Amino acid sequence: MVVRFLPVGGPERKAPVPPRDNLAEVVELRSRLVPEETPDAEPAPDLGDPREQAMRRLARSAQSVTEIERFLRGKGHQPEAIEPVVREFLDRGYLDDLALAKAQTGILRERKRMSTRIIERTLNERGIPREFIGIALAEFDPEGDDEDRVLREAARDRARKMGSLDRATAERRLIAFLARRGFGGSSVRDIAREALDEAAR
């Protein structure tokens, strides 16, 4: 048999529940004692010196203003960092779109025997203003009739290297070669045949 003794004072009473009005105050106090953890801000990436990067780029090859701007943007630099570099390089003559247009026109026209259409497209892709492209082309072709000369020279130069091919194959490859340099029209086939005849002699 189990005997249970009741506390003096009558039936069992529950301990008094403290008022809940002060709970918010306790929560607020704890929040002050334990500060919230905040993630550390990531440091800004080191993009490097845009001027030094541009100088190294120019040391490898001549660049247009547009090409340098594209290059520095690709490195992550913002316009406010790029513009001073471009202004300085223009003032110092490190960047000169007109001189670049003339130099590239000479290479593409006289050494690689490219057509005017290919030269225009190439310089335009490099971001050189159309005004400078026009000046450069006019300097190398002041009369506007230089295209036929370049076409014939390109055909003769290439035909000399096709002596081991049969005539049909040589003609087909020569026409394709001239087309890749931007030459087209009905005269291309006739000039290709003339060049092959001359090489055969």
Rank of each mutant, 00 (worst) to 15 (best):
V3N: 08
F5M: 11
L6I: 12
L6W: 15
P7L: 14
P7Q: 13
P7H: 14
V8W: 10
P11W: 13
P16G: 13
P16I: 08
V17H: 05
V17W: 03
R20F: 06
D21W: 11
L29W: 01
R32L: 10
L33E: 14
L33H: 06
T38F: 11
T38P: 00
A41E: 06
E42G: 07
E42D: 14
E42V: 15
P45N: 07
P45T: 05
G48Y: 02
P50R: 00
P50M: 02
R51H: 07
E52H: 06
A54Q: 02
R57P: 01
R60G: 00
R60A: 05
R60K: 08
S61T: 05
A62F: 10
V65T: 09
I68E: 06
F71L: 11
L72F: 01
G74I: 05
G76Y: 09
P79H: 04
P79R: 07
I82Q: 00
P84S: 05
V85K: 01
V86I: 13
R87H: 03
R87K: 11
F89G: 01
F89S: 02
L90Q: 09
D91V: 04
R92C: 00
D96C: 06
D96A: 13
D97W: 04
K102F: 10
K102L: 12
K102I: 06
G106W: 07
G106H: 09
R109F: 10
R109N: 05
E110V: 07
R113L: 11
T116R: 14
R117Y: 11
R121Y: 12
R121T: 14
T122L: 04
L123D: 12
L123E: 11
N124L: 15
E125D: 14
R126L: 01
P129L: 03
E131N: 12
F132G: 11
G134N: 15
I135R: 15
A136T: 06
A136P: 03
L137E: 03
A138N: 11
E139D: 14
E139K: 10
D141Y: 05
G144S: 09
G144R: 08
D145W: 06
D146A: 11
D146F: 06
L151D: 07
R152S: 02
R152C: 00
E153H: 07
R156N: 05
A159E: 01
G163V: 10
D166M: 01
A168T: 07
A168I: 03
A170I: 00
E171Y: 03
R172L: 05
R173N: 13
R173W: 10
F177S: 07
R180S: 15
R180F: 15
R181K: 14
R181W: 02
G182R: 08
F183M: 04
G185P: 05
S186G: 12
S186F: 08
S187D: 15
V188C: 09
D190I: 09
I191M: 01
A192V: 03
E194W: 00
E194S: 04
A200P: 00
